[in-house]
Amino acid sequence: MIEFQNVSKWFGALQVLRDVNATVAKGTTTVLCGPSGSGKSTLIRTVNRLEPIQKGKITLAGHDIYAKDIDVNVLRSGIGFVFQQFNLFPHLSVVENVMLPLLRIRKQSRAQARPVAMQMLERVGLADKAHSLPADISGGQSQRVAIARSLILKPEVLVLDEPTSALDPEMVGEVLKLLRELSADGITMMCVTHEMGFAREVADRIWFLRNGTLTFDAEPAEFFSDEAHQDVRNFLSAVRKNR
C-alpha cells in the first residue's frame, strides 16, 4: 500500500531521515516508535507531502506521490491525518469541523454533508457535542473529533502523529479504544505513539527509528522479545523505567 524506497530528508545541514526502506501492507496497522528526534513524525509527514523529501521515492498504491501528474490536494484528501495537537478549527463547531472536507472538497451541500458528519460523530461517540465549539470539549473529545474529520472523506490510509501525547492520562483510553476499532475495521494505519501496550495489542508491524534510520521492523511478538535489536531493548527498558 505504502512503500518507502531509500527515503532521505534534510532540514538544512541536518539529515533527519536516512535511506528509509519499508512497506506498509494494505489493511494493516504499523506503529512507529523511537526516541524523540528520531524522525518518526517526519517520516509519517512525508506520506501526504506535509514534509517534502530530498531523496528516494514514496509510492501509495503503486503511484509515486511525487509524480508530476499527482495533485497534492487530491493525494492528501485520500489520506486521513491526525495531529498530536488536534488542530481543530476553533471558529467552527464540532459538526462544522467534520463537515468541512465534504463541503469544500466533495462540494456537497450542507443538507447532504450534515447527516454524513453526524453519522461520523455518532461513530466516535460525540453526536451530542455536534454544536459545541472545540474550546468547550475535552482533549480526548477533541482528538476523537479530529479523527472523525480525518475519516470523513473515507481515506484508504489513516496516519496519526502521537494522537495521545497531548492528552491527560484519563483521556488516553477513549482515543486508543477508537483506534482499536478502526484497526479492526481494516483501515491501513500508520501511528506514531509511545503507548507500547497499544502497539503490542493492535500493531501488525512495529518500526523503530533512531537518528533518522529505521533500525528495526518487526511483528509485535518479535519486537517485545529478547530477540529484538539492542536499540529497541534499550528503548523499551527506558520506557518501562519512566512509567
Binding site: 506535509l50 487530491v74 492528501r76 484528501s77 485520500g78 495531529f83 488542530n87 481543530l88 472538497i105 472523506l153
Partner: peptide, 24 residues
C-alpha cells in the same frame, strides 16, 4: 497547525485562507 490541518485535509490555498485562516 491550522494551515497544516487544512493542507492535510486537501484544501487548496483559497479555501484555506478564506475559510480557515482569515476568519480566525
Amino acid at each position: 497547525g491550522q494551515r497544516e490541518a487544512a493542507a492535510a485535509l486537501g484544501l487548496g490555498y483559497v479555501p484555506t485562507m478564506f475559510r480557515i485562516i482569515l476568519p480566525q
